[in-house]
Design a protein around this nucleic acid. Structure first.
Length: 334
DNA sequence: AGCCTACCTGGGTC
DNA sequence: AGACCCAGGTAGG
């Protein structure tokens, strides 16, 4: 299969930080080929970057709008339609270098942090996947979150295609997750107390109008959308902010988790150091601090900082394990 | 309103 | 080996 090309300056987009930075849990990276495989818009994508291009293949798709567009007389080609989806998902219409420049001018820490972490984009995710993925994320490790999201798709999603012996699924519809039997099934699958949250909030969303309800949240002001989301069972301030930021286009939303608290206390708000947990009051203070600092896209800026922080840890871990690896080899040679 | 604790599970550490 | 601790939080007291 040949690759389609989309012009994209490499410093405008970094796939590693963007797809592996805790925004989406559905992308896998093949280190040898440097290719990414993942699902969004009921479509299986393979992505890689080279020179000035983002290259992509579509391995399969159940996206109806694509086939509907094709049946009309003056139609867009498949390629044009897929390109539109990709541009939307990565928000390629935003000039990221301009944002980085603005944020750097406003904040020295950002300036130094962003040097190694160019091209971190806020994905425009689908609200349903975003919401249920982040219910899974609470009090949890990324590796287990990913495996839970996989399970949701395998058991309640629709198969899109089978590629190289791997089956790919859509993210399930809310209606499927609202079935009363879902809770016990998910308990069985190791979701723990999140099982109840998933089934219950799915039922609430269906009751409130499903798709329509999500659309209304996009139209609302950020604070109102957030308040609305927090009525759902299992969604508190942090997850509500993740959803506002990542899939409802409220880019001033700023999720405050343990990492962000650490960053804030270390670098900006020393009086918050050494607290056991983040209270509502602290949460608001930290969010407002970053909003005052970065402006109406504070959530995106914070994601770059978060990513830099996350990657730092990973690099330390990697170099640790490399050290251990070398030591092991030395021992073997003796 | 603001603080406390239990909560499922799996992976890590000592 | 087993008893901790912790992980991108939240509900219910």
């Amino acid at each position: 299969m040949s690759w389609n090309k989309l012009f994209c300056n490499p410093c405008e987009l970094q796939l590693l930080g963007t797809l592996n930075g805790g925004q989406s849990f559905r992308w896998t990276h093949n280190q040898d080929s440097n290719e990414w495989t993942g699902v969004f818009s009921k479509t299986v994508w393979k992505l890689k970057q080279s020179d000035n291009f983002l290259q992509y293949q579509v391995l399969g798709s159940l996206n109806k709008s694509i086939s509907e567009n094709n049946s009309k007389t003056h139609k867009l080609s498949d390629e044009q339609n897929f390109e539109i989806l990709l541009k939307k998902y990565f928000r390629l219409d935003h000039d990221l270098r301009k944002y980085y420049k603005e944020w750097s001018e406003k904040d020295k820490l950002f300036q130094s942090a962003c040097k190694q972490f160019y091209g971190i984009r806020m994905l425009a995710q689908e609200p349903v996947e975003n919401l249920f993925s982040f219910i899974c994320s609470q009090n949890n490790h990324i590796s287990r979150i990913s495996s839970m999201v996989d399970k949701l798709c395998m058991f309640y999603g629709e198969e899109i295609c089978n590629h190289d012996g791997v089956k790919y699924f859509t993210f399930p519809e809310v209606e499927k997750l609202s079935d009363p039997q879902v809770e016990s099934k998910l308990r069985e699958l190791g979701f723990g107390y999140r099982a109840k949250f998933i089934q219950k909030s799915a039922a609430q969303i269906v009751e409130w109008g499903g798709e329509k309800w999500f659309n209304s949240l996009q139209e609302m002001k950020y604070k109102d959308a957030r308040k609305e989301l927090m009525k759902l069972c299992g969604i508190g301030p942090k997850v509500a902010d993740c959803i506002c930021l990542m899939s409802l286009n409220h880019l001033e939303a700023l999720p405050v988790d343990t990492h962000v608290y650490q960053i804030a206390a270390q670098n900006y708000l020393p009086h918050l150091r050494g607290k056991k947990n983040v209270t509502d009051k602290m949460y608001a203070e930290i969010g407002d601090h970053f909003r005052n600092l970065y402006g109406d896209m504070a959530g995106w800026a914070h994601t770059v900082l978060f990513c830099a922080d996350l990657k730092k840890f990973q690099q330390i871990e990697n170099s640790d394990s490399m050290e251990k690896c070398k030591q092991r080899k030395k021992r073997k040679n003796k």
